[in-house]
Design a protein around this nucleic acid. Structure first.
Lengths: 194, 194
DNA sequence: GATATACTTGAATGTTCATTCAAGAGTCCT
DNA sequence: AGGACTCTTGAATGAACATTCAAGTATATC
């Protein structure tokens, strides 16, 4: 017996960054071996293929985003306040000049369209999971009597989700913090009671 | 002398479809020669490179979208009605099962990020031009006293633009016509006077 | 119809890519 | 300490890629 020498989390973290920076197609195995410090053989032994590594990197990214989401929407805080913070965090990501500016899920979904249904399905499922969690939080806000529209919680969650996707693409054309903050405010206003 | 044997518009139309279907990276020269009927040498003679062909195909796409936009927002119609139609058309595109479901500009913008600043700039400029035209129309709506918010026209145009980007990415996770129509309605409501 | 001037053709080029594998090295159990 | 097992290494492989170019072909002018 002999245990693997590398730290799987660390490798996935680096691979994730590489995919975020270059996209799926342009993240060559050469870039991935450099970023992870692993040799090709080790990657293929541990993950089967470039696609396998990508799938695990995506899952790793998704896991991180889910944890951040749950931390943000802790039970002892107004949902609308958490939502506002979620949008503020998204804006902060978008105006970064690092690979942190992209959402691995939405970017890859755009890239992969029409190419690999299995990856597309994984990305869609992950995104829908966050959308669903958001729906639960919005339902809670309504129960708690927060100043939020009484439309179906899922419809409101979809709207905010769509808004975040839109802001991310918009930021590629114009990463202006003021503009993105204004959009966030418009999105929030649209789901508030008036 | 001898004139070129192929119809440039027809070639660009086919190349555009190929890029819409496969994305930039995965639209190989082989696929492009098959789709256009041109031999590699002819493409390089007429467009210089794959990137040159892509840039012209993007411009061709943009031109088409601009014409469609101007036709939709003819002066003798309420702006809000045209806007509603614009969103309805977008939904129709998104639920298609052909390459017509993608916006070449937004899809490529997501794919190209961090790879080619020249292409990114072209895509951003094209998208901003449509956003700007939309702003002018919204300003006209305000002057004509339509039931539209009195926020800055550009801010409203940005919001709708962002919404369309968002719907396009959202449709990749769930191309449900009812849901997309509901989002359109939410977007419209958000910029109306109340 | 001869000649010059293009455009067309598609095989060849060299690069880059994902992937494999046999040799080497480390670890554990007896 | 020896042997068995597994992980690591990185050069080798073959496919796919964008691009080139010399030969071939059509057109126009004189």
């Amino acid at each position: 017996m002999r245990s693997a020498e590398f730290d799987r989390s660390h490798v996935l973290e680096q691979a994730m960054h590489t995919f975020m920076e270059h996209g799926y197609a342009k993240a060559s195995m050469q870039k991935l071996t450099q970023a992870t410090g692993l040799h090709p053989g080790s990657i293929y032994c541990a993950f089967g293929s470039k696609k396998g590594l990508f799938i695990e990197a995506v899952s790793y990214y998704h896991q991180q985003k889910l944890l951040a989401f749950e931390a943000l929407f802790s039970d002892d805080q107004a949902v609308l306040a958490s939502l506002k913070q979620l949008l503020a965090n998204t804006v902060q990501e978008c105006v970064q000049n690092t690979c942190a500016k992209v959402c691995l899920l939405t970017r890859s979904l755009n890239e992969i369209e029409g190419q690999d249904p299995e990856i597309a399905q994984l990305l869609a499922t992950n995104l829908q999971q966050i959308e669903h969690s958001l729906g639960e939080q919005i339902a809670r806000a309504q129960r708690q009597g927060e100043a939020i529209s009484d439309e179906a919680p899922l419809a409101l969650a979809r709207f905010i989700t769509m808004g975040i996707y839109g802001m991310r693409t918009y930021a590629f054309t114009n990463a202006d913090q003021n503009i993105l903050e204004q959009m966030s405010a418009q999105l929030l206003r649209a789901i508030q009671k008036h």
